[in-house]
Structure formats: structure tokens, C-alpha cells
Design a protein around this nucleic acid. Sequence first.
RNA 1: CGCGGGGUAGAGCAGUGGUAGCUCGUCAGGCUCAUAACCUGAAGGCCGUUGGUUCGAAUCCAACCCCCGCAACCA
Length: 626
Amino acid sequence: MSQQKIIIAVAWPYANGDLHLGHPAGYLLPADVMNKFQRLRGRDVIMVSGSDMHGTPVAVKAWKDGVAPQDYALMQHKRHMAVMQQLGLEYSLYTHTATEIHAQVVQQVFTTLDKAGYIIKQKTEQFWSEKEHKFLLDRYIEGTCPFCGFEKARGDQCDNCGHALTPDELVNPYSIFGDEELVKRVSTNYFLDLAKLQPLLEKHYADNADFKIWRKHVQATTQAWLAEGLMPRAITRDMEGYGVALPVGYEIEREEGKVTYVWFEAVTGYLSASVALSMLGKHKAIASASSLEISPLAIDEAALIPAVEALARGEDNISDTYAGQSLDWQSYWLAGQAKSYYFMGKDNIPFHSVIWTAMLLGLSQALGVSFNTPDILAANQYLNLKGAKFSKSTGNIIDTKKFFEEYGSDASRFFLISRMPENKDYDFTMQEFMDANNSELLANLGNFVNRSLVFWNKQFALAQSEKKFSELTIDSEVISHVDKAFADTAQLLEECKFAKALSVVTELGSFANKYFNDSQIWTVVKTDRAGAQVQMAGMLYLAANIARLLAPFLPEFSANVSGYLGMKIERPEVGRDDWKSLQLPELELDSLGEIAELKPLIARLEMIEEGNEENQAESGSDDQTS
RNA sequence: CGCGGGGUAGAGCAGUGGUAGCUCGUCAGGCUCAUAACCUGAAGGCCGUUGGUUCGAAUCCAACCCCCGCAACCA
């Protein structure tokens, strides 16, 4: 069968604040589990993402803090990278949107779509600030809400009554930059002609078999957008040059400080990061970027040599060494050669299922190739706290970094994956987190492995002249349960049902505990050592394979158990495509002796006092301005 | 207002036409190898409301109610 490559595209976190627990729950962990799973089964997979450096929220935040937006975004990007590494995410490349490579790919996409007639010009009237010498974004205008009378309504939205607004509707509009008379000027911007692309999209979704297995809310959101009819959408804005500049050939707009609208360039990051990864790989491989061959997009490779070299230094990016076999980004982006998995929060669905997909279809049409559109679009709902969205201003937040530091990878990942908000919002409580750790992870999986290994140490490790493990026949019941667990996890993970896939492993843990109980090995061993040894083999077989099944979910737990058993869980050669072959084929534990320094695998968590819980629920002081 | 998602045992969730399931919690019993962990059993739900389709509905249709999101420093 064909060895399809896999690209895992992870949503780009905004560089306007720290990551909170909603980020791993929403898209970072599902992407990571999928990535680890596909790598372990031997697929040729890349995972790309980066920080979204541009956009109004970043600019506003930086302006409030009195910092240049570029500096602020880069600082925030580095904080993001630290958290990514702490979570153990294995990106092929985690970069950001302020790179040369990104800019050039975005510009190339822009030019290509424009030449193909998918971009149109439209005039819009916007407020102009004489004092600031720039167009004021809707958000920079405040005034009185015409609906509720709220005096500090923003130009895009009234925070009091929730009405969507335009600056024109405001009574007594004023600039947030200070006193001055507001005047209007006409600005011409470019629009992506989504109306023209709609037929392509409709045909695309009519033909797409994968679409039917998307989660219900993802399908529904996509169809709702299409049913309402798509309108041209602005892809440039007047932002004083903060953002990705328009391509060469659009000199007037460049001089005006127009940049591509953040949503247009951010989604293109998946493509630009793949190109960057490709160039990076070739750069490392042949130490010369001059012979790179990048097509079908016409990238100016020579101009990017410094950028590739910067990338190779790895100061502003994370790049692991597992980039699959091929260094050609095209092989991950051309239809038929690769399958794509996208991970994001629910707010991002239309940008991917409608707009990004439309852009790719337009590019395909324009270039006469077939770009790989999102095959699997796994958007999660929200992880809430105290019934509300995470919010920094109210202290309603749990900082990801602190949480993982406090409770460790296993407990954190187990909770976030087993309670993942795949189909509806989930409300985080400390009690539920404790229960998940103590009553499920510890009591079931942790306890089974622990009791098995402890028993081994006590009863068998030092015994001599007994049969070797490889000569024993493990109960067929044990084998069949493990077989089924491998088959079920593979299928569920392929369908992005992460919580359920993890529950397959805990079910195997329940079976294992029952097997231990029913065997009465602690009695049998006194009268029938040969029989007990067969039972022991079954238990170690279960423990070893639980460790292997957990490798994508709980890498630490998995590695610890493997370490005790003297096994290594190694990635197979790329191209094997066989999850089940990770299953321990036979028990090669003939040389297993006493396990030294055996410790319980999962720590019991105790409910902390009220005061401390308060600490957990706060983001900590804002030390981001330094 | 509009669009979308959700409303199933105390809690968190599965379940898209055919005798209501899972995990946790609770209660009772068993075991004692194991981190007061494990195993067995039980109690606990008129599947948001009302009406309709059907031999039969948690599941399909209609109306309504409640929660969440789409607009906020936010996935």
C-alpha cells in the first residue's frame, strides 16, 4: 500500500500572552499525541507550527506596555518556546511569523492568488489620525454605544452589551491615542475573493470522504459558513508596516505601510514552516542553500540563505532531528502524497476549513498542481475554569508552565487527555484533577505496574535455575487483550478520539489488575513455582505493553517502566507503518534481574488548602514587560 | 437578534430507531502481592420540556427552556 506521508499542522499561538491550560487541552496535546503515535508506528511525519507575531492584539498589548511590537512578540515567542519544550512537544519545526522565509512564502501566495484573479481591490473608508499619521483600526476608536449607551464601547464591539459595531455607529467617537479630531480617509485594500472561491470549496467538500468523520461541531461550523455565502474578505490592512509586507510590485501599498492581514499570513505559516524545514534540512545536508530547488512556488532561494542560516543556528526556533525521510516540503503538501492533520481550538475552525482551504484550492488552480488541503481537522472545544473562559484580567487562569512544573508531565497529561474537550466544553476543577490522578492513573495503571514489579523483585528476581521467559507460554487471554488494545488505540487515534484511545489503555489496566487478583499468584508461588512463573510472565508482558501503549500519551511513565524492564522503546524505521509491531512480540526478559531503585510510578496528590489553591488559580504577576 | 455546539445516574462523559452504558464517587462484601492501592456485588437515571412520526425514540421531526461559543488580554 502507498506510504502516505503525514503533516501535522498545529495552530499558531498568539504572541500576546502566556500559554494557559486551555492551550495544551485544546490543541497542543492532541497534536503531540498524534505526532508521537505516528512516529512510533513508523510513519514519515512532520509537525510544524510557530508563534503568530503580528496582529492587532499584539500591537495593542505592546503599545500599552510601551514596547515595540516586534520586541514584545519576540519575547513572548521565546516564552512560548520554553513551554513547548517543557511539555515535551516534538516539533519538526516551531518557528514564528516574523521570519524572512515566512514573508517570502506569504508574498508568493499573495502574488499567485492575485495573478489568478482571486484577489480584488476595494475601497474602504477609515478614520485617519493626523497626530499619529496612520489609519486607526476599529479597535483604536472608542465612543458611546448606540445600543446601550455604554461610554467606552470599542469601534468593533461594545463590551457592555455585546453588539458588534462599526466605528461609524459610535456616538462621540474618539481615538484611544488622545485628543484629536477624527477625520476619515479612503483607503484601498486587497480582498480575497471568497465568493469566487466558493464553488471550488463546495465541490471540494462534496467529494471529501474524510469530512464525514470530522467532529460534528466542526462540520456544522463549516457548513454554516458555506450556507450563508462567502463574501470577499480583506487581506491587507494599514498597520504602519507591522506585519508581513506586501510583495514587490505593490510599491504604493508598501510605502503606505500596508501589510497582509494577520489571518491571511498566519495560516500560510503551515506552508512557510514546511518550506523552512525543507530548506533547513537541505542546508544541513549539503551545507549550501544555493542549490535548493523549491517549487512549485517560486521562492527566491538565494535571498533566503541568511534566513536559513539563522534558522540553522536555532535561536528562535525549535527543530528536532526527526524530519522524516524526505527533505522536500512538496512531498508533504501535494495531494495524494501526504495526509494532513490540523489541530486548533474551536474559534479557529472557519479560518482553516473555509478560508485556508479556499486559499489552497485557489493556489492549486493557479499553479496547475493539487495542494493538500486539511484532511483531518480536529478542533477541540474549550477547557473552562469555574464555568468561564480563561481570562487574565480576572485571574481566572491556570498557567501551563507552572501547572506542569507543580504536578509533572504524567499527571498533567493524563488529566488533560482523559478529559479533553473534544465535543463540548469541559470545566476544570482541582478535585477532578486529583481524582483523575489518584483514582484512575495511580490506582489502575500505576498500581498494576508497581505491584507486578515489586512481586517480581520479591519472588523471582534472584531465583536460579528456572525456565527462561522466552520458554514460557503466556496465557492466551492476556495476549488477546493486548492485541485488541493495540488495534483499538490505533483506530481511535486515527480518528482523533484521544480520550477514548487513552481509556482503552486504562481498560487494559483494569484487566491486568483483575488478572493479578484472579491468579492469586501470591498463593500459587508457594506451591507451584512453575505455574506462578507463567503468571508472572503474563503480568510483565502486560506491564511492558502498557508502557508501549502509553508512549504517545504519557512518555515519562512509558520510559520509566521501560527502564525498569531494561527495554527501549525505539522509533522504528520510517516507512514501516505498523503500530502493532511496537507490541512486545515475545517476552525477552531472560536477563532481567532484580530491578534496582524501584519506586512507585505515580505520586499521590493531596488536596492542598484553600490558600494554596488560590495560588494555583492565578497566573502570577505580570513580569512580561521586561 | 442571528449562527453553531451542548443539555443522559451525585460528578465527568459514551451512546444517531429495538430491553439505558463507562469512569469517578457512595454502600456492602472479598483479597492482602500492591501507593488505604486491587477484585466482586449493590443502590442510584421517567436520557432539558411539550407535542409529533413509528409496531417501537435518548436516538428522527416541530416548538420552547437553560448552558457555552462565534465579539473581549483568550484555544
